[in-house]
Design a binder for these strands. Sequence first.
DNA 1: GACGATTCTGACAACGCTGTCTTTAGATAA
DNA 2: TTATCTAAAGACAGCGTTGTCAGAATCGTC
Lengths: 339, 339
Amino acid sequence: MSIKKASTIQDVANKAKVSIKTVSRVINNEPNVSLETVKKVETAIDLLDYQPNAFAQSLARSKPKIISLIYDTPSPNYISHIMEGVLAYCYKVDYEVIIHPLRFNEVGLMRSAEKFIKKSRLAGLIVTPPYSDNVEFIKLIESFDLPKVLISSGLNISEEDSIKTNDREVSMQMTDYLISNGHKRIAFIKGHPTHLCINDRFKGYQDAMNRAGIEIDNSIVENGLNSLSSGEQCAERLLSLKERPTAIFSSNDEMAAGVIKVAYRNGLNIPSDLSVVGFDDSPMTAMITPPLTTVKQPLDAIGEKSAEKLIDKLENKELVRESVINSNIIYRDSVKKIN
Amino acid sequence: MSIKKASTIQDVANKAKVSIKTVSRVINNEPNVSLETVKKVETAIDLLDYQPNAFAQSLARSKPKIISLIYDTPSPNYISHIMEGVLAYCYKVDYEVIIHPLRFNEVGLMRSAEKFIKKSRLAGLIVTPPYSDNVEFIKLIESFDLPKVLISSGLNISEEDSIKTNDREVSMQMTDYLISNGHKRIAFIKGHPTHLCINDRFKGYQDAMNRAGIEIDNSIVENGLNSLSSGEQCAERLLSLKERPTAIFSSNDEMAAGVIKVAYRNGLNIPSDLSVVGFDDSPMTAMITPPLTTVKQPLDAIGEKSAEKLIDKLENKELVRESVINSNIIYRDSVKKIN
DNA sequence: GACGATTCTGACAACGCTGTCTTTAGATAA
DNA sequence: TTATCTAAAGACAGCGTTGTCAGAATCGTC
């Protein structure tokens, strides 16, 4: 097979016998091109299978069509679904995406973030936790006057710049569900303190408990660190209490998995001896025994909405997009009714 | 805070009182610049915190410093670790990476792949399964004369263009391990037939069985489809056999998780009634009960090596890099000695 | 038929950089 | 001294596109 060479706007212009500017007009749906000319140009584009060079466009445009997704790397599952959604939307509207992992604990984090922003000439940024909780980072973005969308930020960010989930509300529902199954002594394992948004999950738990008139016993509220082993540690303490909880609500699945491991180790059956619920619906939750009742965040949708919101802003569409995306409880087999 | 504006090569040139070309020379470590001038320019660069605009560079250069990572989206864990490695290496050597998911089952896959290649002006491609097994796709790449590195391709690709893992060998070791634990009736669950590389795992099983002089009973070799549910189905059949296997080797962890679920459902304990091993060391394997003995591929390293190999090729470094990366067995608690 | 208004089209600079070629200045040789 | 060479630096075009502005064609109006 002969070697293909991508054709340029000039090639198209030659073939259609118009100027390159006219081709540019057609590509970008600019007004004031006669129907006839549009046809000619489109035919030429088809014939040559022309694709505009994205980087030349970025260079020439005042606002390049390139955005970036910023993340740390805590959970592959989380970020890859968000990314999926972002890429899908951007692909549709013909934006390029640059994926940029940043090491949260790195020295000189801000420096390297700044370097990245400078060299890439971005139109805007989508920021995931934990960066969306990081005041310094957000200031950096603002100092470049870069449009942004922050995902699940625990900070007090204007609705225009953020996409949130209803963590608090759904945590409340989950707690209600536990209560409606007869549980009163419900332990809670909090998440990592730097993940602000995860705190909302605790608030939802408080809401439900308060509403149900059950006093929260702080001896069964644990401070977890999001990891499996941290879940195990919390569970060790919780399960060695003389007055054991009948249910444990963990702010994420990984810690819930730790709880389940410890429960088994202590000869406890789930759900008959202990009900456990998690949060996130990470892939393993369906695989462990018993399958875990948990909360599913529609991550793809979150990614997609974030991209949509950012790009709408970039193009000055004044649509006010919904900023809260609802999660759902996935009912599986880790909760049992007691009396 | 005032709004920052990224500085350009011109700004640096002005500040250092040299021409932009000289600045360019310094940035790219070109020869024939006096030490004194280099100093001046570097000072100016520091002062202005200058970062070359990556896209302008790409446009101007004959070989842009941009590569792409091509993948489908079967497993978030797999791809995000590979990506991690690729990004890390590229970051070091100052290459940009464009991430590009492609839908394997989409109509017009080749069309959209071709479009992507044309619009992005890439220097080279890193291709993961299943695309690295796809002849048509590889031909497409070759028709553009694009340098490439194929990860875990089951095709007969020159060593220069591929990074492989020792799946076959380590599968043999795993089977040996089972045999050395007294197992003779060892079932095998194959992976999805389009994933060529996964077939090597079966070959390794065959190798070990043959060498140990154990005849392979085809009634306990199942054709799986990589998914949890497919693992469950295979396990249903396997465990309902009158002469049950004492161990099951699944070509991936997800199917192994399915096996474990079915085993529990049938009142079988693992590992005392049945040993199970998997492949991939996906995150959940440590969380299920019992923790699964499996094979860990060093995915980050694979990504990194792929990027290194591709970029070495792009820069005509003639180093022959090792093309096989070794996986290791992770011994956990899902295997028990029998007699 | 002449006029301005409107629609369409094209020339050309600009985006920020690299590649090629030329110029300059200093060193070396005759 | 002058010619010759070489290292260092710069001028300028070009990468593939968009933005600005000016020009040409068409239209409606009086």
